[in-house]
Amino acid sequence: MATADDFKLIRDIHSTGGRRQVFGSREQKPFEDLVDLGWLKRSSVDSRATHYQITERGTSAAL
């Protein structure tokens, strides 16, 4: 179930172009929650960072 923080984060991601790069596993937790909701997808993972991209469902949630 989505929380107020989830909606705040997806709106922030949407307003800044729909993509986010995250460093460190602790910082990934809120983004992984949005992946579980179907609002974000992991577009790539490298040794230092994970890249996320907003989905259509995420765009709808952000509006």
Rank of each mutant, 00 (worst) to 15 (best):
M1A: 11
A2C: 08
T3H: 07
T3E: 04
A4V: 11
A4D: 12
D5V: 06
F7A: 03
F7Y: 14
K8L: 10
L9E: 02
R11T: 07
R11S: 07
I13E: 01
I13H: 01
I13K: 01
H14P: 00
S15A: 14
T16K: 11
T16F: 05
T16L: 07
G17F: 04
G17A: 05
G18N: 03
R19V: 14
R19G: 09
R19K: 12
R20L: 10
Q21H: 11
Q21N: 08
Q21K: 13
V22C: 05
F23P: 12
F23Y: 11
F23G: 10
F23N: 12
G24N: 13
G24F: 08
G24P: 07
S25M: 08
R26I: 15
R26W: 14
R26M: 15
Q28W: 05
Q28L: 11
K29T: 06
K29H: 06
P30G: 05
P30H: 07
P30I: 06
E32W: 05
D33C: 13
D33A: 15
D33Q: 14
L34A: 02
V35K: 02
V35P: 00
D36E: 13
D36K: 14
L37N: 02
L37A: 03
L37T: 02
W39C: 02
W39P: 00
K41V: 15
K41H: 10
K41A: 11
R42C: 07
R42I: 15
S43C: 14
S43E: 15
S43A: 13
S44Y: 15
S44A: 13
S44V: 12
V45R: 10
V45T: 10
D46E: 09
S47F: 09
S47E: 14
S47G: 14
R48G: 14
R48A: 13
R48I: 13
R48L: 14
R48M: 14
A49T: 13
A49M: 12
A49L: 10
A49K: 08
T50Q: 06
T50W: 07
T50C: 07
T50N: 07
H51L: 15
H51D: 12
H51R: 08
H51E: 15
H51T: 15
Y52K: 01
Y52V: 01
Y52G: 01
Y52M: 01
Y52F: 04
Q53G: 04
Q53F: 09
Q53M: 11
T55S: 04
E56G: 07
T59R: 12
T59G: 03
S60I: 14
S60N: 12
A62R: 02
A62L: 04
A62Q: 02
L63C: 10
L63D: 05
L63Y: 05
